[in-house]
Simulated scan of single mutants.
Amino acid sequence: MQEHFVWVTTRRLQPGTLEAFERAWRPASYPQGMRRAFAYWSEDGQEITGVSFWDSQEACDSWRDSGPEAQRRTAMAPYVVEEREGFYHGRELALPQQ
Rank of each mutant, 00 (worst) to 15 (best):
D61K: 14
F21G: 04
E69Q: 14
E85R: 13
A59W: 07
V6P: 01
D44A: 04
L93Q: 09
W54E: 01
A75L: 09
Y88S: 09
R35Q: 14
D65M: 05
F5T: 10
S66D: 09
E3V: 08
F87Y: 15
W54L: 01
E22R: 11
T17D: 03
G50A: 07
G33I: 06
V6Q: 00
Q46E: 12
M34R: 12
Q57L: 03
Y79I: 06
Q98A: 05
S52H: 02
W25A: 14
Q32K: 13
S62Q: 13
F38H: 11
Y40L: 15
E22I: 06
Q98S: 10
A37T: 14
S66V: 06
G50C: 02
F5W: 04
E3Y: 04
T9G: 05
S62V: 03
T10F: 00
V8T: 10
R26W: 05
D44T: 10
F38A: 10
E22C: 11
P31R: 07
A59D: 12
H4E: 11
Q57C: 02
W63I: 07
E92R: 13
S29C: 05
G67D: 14
M1N: 13
S52W: 02
Q2P: 11
G50D: 05
V80M: 04
S62M: 07
E47L: 09
E92F: 10
T17Y: 02
S52P: 11
R64D: 11
A39K: 05
Y40S: 12
A59L: 05
E22W: 02
Y88N: 09
E58K: 14
S56E: 07
A37G: 07
E69W: 08
R72N: 11
F53Y: 15
R73H: 00
P78H: 03
A77Q: 12
G45K: 08
M34Q: 15
F53C: 00
E83T: 12
E19T: 14
V6D: 00
R36I: 02
S29A: 14
G86I: 03
Q97E: 15
A20L: 13
M1C: 09
F21R: 02
Y40P: 03
M1Q: 10
Q14V: 12
T9N: 11
L95G: 12
A28G: 10
E22Q: 15
F38P: 03
S52E: 00
G45P: 06
A39D: 02
F53V: 13
Y30R: 09
Q98N: 08
S42V: 06
G90K: 07
T9I: 10
V80P: 01
G16D: 02
Q98L: 07
E82Q: 13
R11S: 07
E85V: 00
F38W: 12
W54T: 01
R84V: 04
P78Q: 02
D55W: 05
V8S: 08
H4R: 12
G33A: 05
Q2E: 14
V51F: 01
